[in-house]
Each structure stands twice: as C-alpha cells, then as structure tokens.
Design a protein around this nucleic acid. Structure first.
Lengths: 318, 318
DNA sequence: TATATTTGCATAATTAGTTATGTAATTAAT
DNA sequence: ATTAATTACATAACTAATTATGCAAATATA
C-alpha cells in the first residue's frame, strides 16, 4: 500500500486491519487446500481444547482473549461440525464444559502436519524480512500493556505543548492581561472586591515594589496565565501565593502547574521558609493543583477576602 | 498473550486480529481525548480527501484498498457529520464526486497536530522495541505480493514430503511391489496383456539382465512407486521408459517426477542419446508428466501393447 | 440507430467480532 | 432460611468490514 508511505504512522490501525484480513483470507485457503473442513477463527479455541482438558466457555474466552459470546458462537459452530461435545459432566449446571469429540481429536492429528508447514512458511517470510513481524508483535503487546497508546499520545501532546509555553517575569505590557485574566475567574465564581481592584490596577506599587513577584505564562507568545508572589505583612508568613489565573480556553496544558512552580521557586530563592495562600473549596481544580504543589490546609487565619474559605501553607525546607 | 507462545506462528492471524482491535480501540479513545468528532475508520478516506482533489467513490476505494461499498458507507457517515460534500460537478451522472466541506477542511487542520502526536508516540514505541513493526508490515506486504502465504505453505509441504520420499534401485524384495503397483493401474484402465505379465513376473531376466534398470520410490520406507529403463532391440532407440506406476493413495508428492528423473539420468549415464516411451492419451496426468520431463510426441512406430495410442521420445543431449 | 456491454454506485446480505441484556444457578449475607 | 449478589452463559443488537445484486448511465458494437 503506497498510501501508508504518505499517511504516516497515524494509519497503523488501518494498515493492520488490511494486513490481517489478507492473512486470514490466505489461512482459509490453506485449510481448503489441505482438504480440512476448518475455519481460521476456530483455531485458538481448537488449539486449547486439543490439550484434551475439558474447559468451560468462559475459561476458553479468557485463555484466547476473546469475549465470552464470541467463544459461545464458535463452540456452537464446532459442535455443528462435530468437532466438539458440550455439557460434559459438571455439578454446576450453569457451566457448559466442552471437549473435543473423537472427530475433533482426529482432526487435531491431521492439523499437526499443516501447522508444521505453516510455521515453516512463516519462518521463511521472517527470514526473508529484515524486521521480524512476530517478535515485533510480541514486543508491542508488552510495551502497550505497560503503557497504552493513548497514554503515550497524551504525553507527546504535553511535550509538544510545553514547547509553546514559556513562563516569564512581569513587564508593564502584561498589566492588561494580569487584570483581565484575574477578573475573568473572580467574576465567574464570586464578586470582585475592593482588595482585588487595588492590586489588579496597580500591580507595580501593590506587589512588585513591596518585594513581590509576578509571573506570566505565554502560550505561543500570548499571555494566558498569571500568578504572583506577594510579600506579606505578617509575623508567621513572609510570602503569599495569590492572583493565580489561567485562561479557561487553554486548560490541560499544565500552565497552572508551571506558574505555581515558578512562584514556589522564587519564594525559595528569596529565602522564604513558608508560603501561604487562600482560596475557595468551590475551585476544585485549583485546590488540587495546590495539593500537588505540596500545600497543606491550615486553620484560623483572618483574611481580607470574603470569598476565602480555605487557607493553605507550604513549608519550604531548603 | 501467552497463548501465542504455545500455538506457534499458525495463530498469526488471530494474534493480528486481537492486536488490531486493540490499536483501533485506542485510536478511538485518542480522537475522543482531543475532542475531535471522528472515527478511526474514516481516516484513510479523509486523508485522501485532505489533499483537496475531489474524488469519486471508486477512486477512493482503490486508493485506500477498501471495497467500493465500504467507501460508499464511510462517505455517507462523513456527509452526516458534515465533513464532506457529495455530487460535486461531473458530466457523468453515474459518478459521485466528493470533496471535503469547509468543516472538513477545518477538521483537517485540527487533525494535523493530533497526527503529529500519534506519529511521535508510535515512533516512541518503535524506538523502545527491538523489532520494527511498521517496517516489518511494509516488508511483509511486499513479500506476500511477491509470493502468497498459500504458495509458501504449499512449497513447505512439498519440501516436507520430499524428505520422506527416497528413490532407490531395485532389489529382489521389491518384486511384489513392482508387480502389484503396475497391475493396479493397468487393470484399472485396460486389460493386463501377455507382454505385461512376462516383464512383471520376471523383472530380473526381462529388464535388468538385458542391461536395463528399475527404480523404486519409497515413501517412509514403503515402496509406493516404480519405473524402469528397458534396453530396446531397435535401430533407432536404445532405451525405453516403461512400467511407471505410482500408488494412487500417494498422489501429489512428485513421486512420478522423481522416478522419471531417475530413469532419465540413468539413461544419460548409460550414454543413451534418445529415450522412448509409449502410453495412452487416456492417462492425462502421465502424459503431462512426460511432457514435463521433456518428451515429445512421435508417430508411426509399431508396439506390442494394444493399449498404446501415443508414443514419445526424449533427446538426451549430454 | 438500436442493442449489448461496461461502469459506478447504492443497497442487501454475510462475517467475525464486539457490547448489552436477561435468566437460571450458585454463593454470600442477614 | 430467605434474600441479595454474583456467576455462567445464551441471545440480541451493533460494528466494520466483506461479497452479491440490481439499476441507471455511458460506451462500444452491429
């Protein structure tokens, strides 16, 4: 298929499907040529039963990796072909214990030679090829058991998007973004308070000049998130993490996490021993993020914000 | 799947099927995760249309290697999803020319990033694996185009069966087989004649002592075929190939061919320049075999056998 | 020009699997 | 000893492909 040279690996599934039908079609022809009245799809079930241990439908399904109804149907067909007997003795009347019939056992013997020929033929292809398909399948099964394709794609996306994300220090030109990003989420969930307005309108005098810091997350060079480290006027805490805001349009790119890390690192560099924050339990993703950053809930602090119903701290052991 | 360690390569088809569904299921989850309303089975058709050249149903089917009804259905679904427009201008009213809609083109752009991530993820698996699945598939497609799996299995069977076949020179103990194998086919098609009886009862005096040879084909050490090289008493021909008989139970194992070769080679070794035989056109497989050995039909020879209606010769250019 | 053949496609029926569902038999829990 | 939960399995409905079939349009042929 020339197509797959162009599509890239995205079409792996399609390519596999096409290839699989090709192999299965040939398998059917092979049974035919050996004058063996047999269907490729019976093979896995038949193979297990050829070990001559009676099995239930469900046991067979588990061993061959099919669904139970699939085995149910296959067994029905094989009974029709006289290869299998059902309802072998069992005290449990729910179970349908099946085993090869005499005709089945006889067919099993006849299949041995065919199996040997097919095995040799496939080994032939393998030896002609540079890349071993059989081994590759085994490896892929193992690797995907370990980490699914979905998971791997998710990681790739993160990796790609991280490349587009940059955390920079505040500059005058980001004042608009600093204000609007914060106003967006505050007004969505709560009311904007006087304390907010002061800080958002005058970040320089209210945050930076007092010894705080503001970080801006740029996505493709556009500001999409902000977070500040605010110097506190308190005996217990020197710094507060506050005014964290990420554009809702750009969720799932770890921007909150990166901003949080930047603030925590800045606090460490400034020699802070603890970091404080206040928030609201309604904001579940935010609380989750704070937990991930290592913050723990504390109690009994006063706050100028009405919306605050949870307070947290992070101990920075340098 | 542990099963496949036991079954051997015979279960390649089953293994591939299982693996394919696994990949396809994950692919569906991936589209989902990207919030793209798309089905893996649309991908090949979509990919072709994304080149922005309108195509007919049949053209698409050929390019992606599906049947025409399959594409017909896929297109119907994609029209339903608003990704494709049908009945683009065509003078030929049978043709259904389809192309991406604006929504389809937009989706194509969104898919680019996802494709890149999937590609990278699959490349990741490939780099973790020792055997390259993608390359292996490409090689197998090529190798099976060149020679099908069926053909390869047929060859393996021949090879296996040849190992059980041995051509040996006549010994006294094979006299019974020499007689009965010949009597079997002669009496099936014709009458046993006096000339037959003499040679079959006394191979030593009638064939060997006159400077001829007899070869016996053993299958698993049992005599299943015979053929003789008989010294002739004729100005034109020194040797005749005769009394070729193969047990009907053991057809298709090239035993006739091997016996014929043995006789021809013996004739060459004895320095014969031509080899003669007579037969009956009723015996089509035999005549075919003689042709394959290089014999050509000749005319106007007398023969002691009533059943003979064709005569052939082989020129042995050493 | 009329007729036969070929082509393009939709629709129907089939295949080999899947989930979803219902029911009887068994086991666990009160 | 009931009742609730679980289990084993068959059956039904769905899925993504396939072949088979039929019909209209276009092309070739007489």
């Amino acid at each position: 298929m020339d197509l797959f040279k162009k599509t890239g690996k995205m079409a792996l599934g399609s390519r596999l499907r096409l290839f699989t039908t090709r192999i299965t079609d040939d398998a059917a022809k092979i049974y035919d040529w050996y004058h063996i009245d047999f269907t490729p799809k019976w093979f896995p079930v038949f193979f297990i039963l050829a070990e001559d241990v009676p099995k239930t439908i469900t046991e067979l399904a588990n061993e061959i990796g099919h669904s139970q109804p699939s085995v149910s149907k296959i067994i029905k067909e094989m009974i029709g072909a006289g290869l299998v007997n059902e309802n072998q003795t069992s005290t449990d009347k729910r179970r349908n214990v099946v085993a090869l019939s005499d005709k089945g056992r006889e067919m099993s013997e006849r299949l041995v030679l065919q199996c040997a020929d097919v095995d040799a033929a496939i080994d032939g292809v393998i030896s002609e090829a540079h890349h071993n398909l059989w081994e590759a399948l085994e490896e892929w099964e193992y690797l995907l058991d370990h980490k699914s394709l979905l998971k791997r794609v998710q990681e790739q996306r993160k990796l790609r998007e991280r490349k587009d994300v940059e955390i920079v220090e505040y500059q005058e030109k980001y004042q608009g973004a600093f204000k609007s990003l914060n106003e967006e989420w505050i007004s969505t969930y709560f009311e904007i308070e006087e304390a907010d307005r002061k800080a958002l309108d005058n970040p320089k005098s209210y945050i930076l000049d007092k010894g705080g810091k503001i970080f801006v997350a740029l996505y493709k060079n556009e500001p999409v998130g902000v977070c500040s480290l605010i110097k506190m006027d308190d005996a217990n805490y020197e710094y507060e993490l506050a005014k964290m805001a990420v554009s809702p349009a750009i969720q799932g790119k770890s921007i909150g996490w990166l901003l949080g890390l930047a603030v925590v690192n800045a606090a460490k560099e400034l020699g802070a021993s603890k970091l404080y924050l206040e928030s609201n339990t309604e904001l579940k993703p935010a609380i989750n993020l704070y937990h991930k950053l290592g913050f723990k809930k504390i109690v009994n602090r006063s706050t100028p914000y009405a919306r605050c119903n949870i307070q947290m701290e992070l101990t920075l052991i340098n």
